[in-house]
Design a protein around this nucleic acid. Sequence first.
DNA 1: AATAAAAATGCAAACGTTTTCATTTTAAGG
DNA 2: CCTTAAAATGAAAACGTTTGCATTTTTATT
Lengths: 343, 343
Amino acid sequence: MAKRSRSFKGAPGIVDVAARAEVSPATVSRFFNNPDVVKTPTRKRIEKAANDLGYIRDRMAGSMHNRFSGTIGLIVPTIDNAIFSELIEAFASQLLEHDRTMLIAAHGYELKREIGIVRSLLERRIDGIALVGQDHDAVPMNMLAQRNIPVVSIWNFDANSSIPCIGADNFEAGRLVAQHLFDLGHRNITVIFPDTNHNDRARDRLSGVKSVFKSQQLSLSHKNLMTCPYDIGEAKKLTMKILQSNRSTAVVCGNDIISHGVIFACQALGLNVPQDLSIVGIGDFAGSAHMEPGLTTVRLPAKRIGILAADTLVAMNETGIPPKNKHQEVEMRFMHRGSTAVV
Amino acid sequence: MAKRSRSFKGAPGIVDVAARAEVSPATVSRFFNNPDVVKTPTRKRIEKAANDLGYIRDRMAGSMHNRFSGTIGLIVPTIDNAIFSELIEAFASQLLEHDRTMLIAAHGYELKREIGIVRSLLERRIDGIALVGQDHDAVPMNMLAQRNIPVVSIWNFDANSSIPCIGADNFEAGRLVAQHLFDLGHRNITVIFPDTNHNDRARDRLSGVKSVFKSQQLSLSHKNLMTCPYDIGEAKKLTMKILQSNRSTAVVCGNDIISHGVIFACQALGLNVPQDLSIVGIGDFAGSAHMEPGLTTVRLPAKRIGILAADTLVAMNETGIPPKNKHQEVEMRFMHRGSTAVV
DNA sequence: AATAAAAATGCAAACGTTTTCATTTTAAGG
DNA sequence: CCTTAAAATGAAAACGTTTGCATTTTTATT
């Protein structure tokens, strides 16, 4: 029986391949990492040997030298929600293009959980990490900084962010939808937003909405500003309750999820959208374009953000460190659909 | 300057902690992996040293001995879709409970891509992997088998599956919704399903539907069996086209996504659901319960599947290998909501 | 208090690669 | 065909842990 160092574990190692190809392990390593430095005939032999043996390299072992693991982390508030799924998919696919893989975790909108997650990712030696938003605990940020791990903040654009960011201008998104309603003549407007604590995206959007109210000399009181979780059912329930006493002509929702709930609530109550009530969302998730009526909203290019984030992170650890353009803004698009009309 | 072997890289290593705590690296290692074998005072010293230094262990280095990396893979057809997001989130969270992390990738319903993905995951030394469905290319399955990597098939229950599986009886799901329509008196039924090639879930559901047709002596012809991708917009478009010439009283959809599209199509055409058309889906995704009308469907416990899958995989590499109950069936629930009515 | 057994710790050899440096082979130039 | 430079390969030392074995310390027993 030939010399098969690792065979008892079931898998051949680089030395097995080397032996079979009659070269040194070093050359096999080069074959995989830097193919053009090995002569063609040798290359062929190694390739054949590797195939015959079904060799799969152990990047982990390699990473002990490399300092790079080929794995990049992504932390999102939640996976189980249309909001981020497009982003996640795009990020993962683009990483695959770069021969990297994604390690993902969700903190469920509890920023404190991020510290444990970051630690766990760090223990697995990630080469970089993408974090949603700008609000983060100092502890994990320090862990990352101390280790010089490339970090990007995604989703929200902030020209003053200390770490590189890739995202859309959420203030502007909020401004756009609110202004749209005012332009249609609405003056009695209800605003339904998620909790803005530890959530810069929602906070910025709300600021944008408020800026329009202010410019119109209107007040946004407690009575017409409601808080609602990221859940269609909750949004629907809440809306059905407030619509009994509330005579608004329009609703601004902090995101499309809430909008869906509001629209369903109207349908349940027999209200006509947009004749009886105009509704706007932010995000343009799957379904928003096709529901009836179509939801007027702002399209945030989640896919593009995911791709840019992946590219940026990979570039950060391939080149030196910080990316040329530290703050990358992606364009939004206002989508005027059937859920809004003149008052 | 103290001896800091790895410090130039920015991060302290186990020997730095050992030096500071005045013990050997071996003891520090034990402190982390098997705390109860180290005496309390020593433990305290190590803990303090590790904290002072901000030490984060390098599991990768440890995995060179361990054979376990603490990382588990999940391959799904798609991330960007309500179908699997609940599953993914549950799987990831449960793994975190077990101090593992998830490596995830999507093949976009192209089974051939699974081979590259599996290879990539294997190179990262996953401890186990969960695959959606039973239809898989032989190549990746062999790679996994050769290496003795625990594998579970999730989503679909199949009592004869050669690998462990955790899922629901999709045949029964199809049977349930079709039978429901027949029980309501429907005889002219359109069936809209995703492509069943390389998709055992859809295939089994369709078989279930067909079994009802057969038992009712009805035929399911080309004319009333349509294929449609997993996309609300496509489903809506298709439905709007076929509803012009088609006088069915009910539609069976292969999944809730398609159902949503069908319902929106009806609303766009001014048809009343369920009076003019009854609609059933399968899955019970986010939104199905709250849309108007609520969608009659079958609830597949995605969360439970995710948790069970995580637990099973972890158990598989903690105990010996194969789980006690190789085939785990999770219960479904038929959800009768507003989208169906007597003809 | 002495001895045996058990518990805690240390030493040093792995784990499977990559990489530096040295050596051999090939190609180029005259 | 010989010399020199360049290209290809090999030998061996890392990388940061874990772990088997040996050694020391503690606890229990008489």
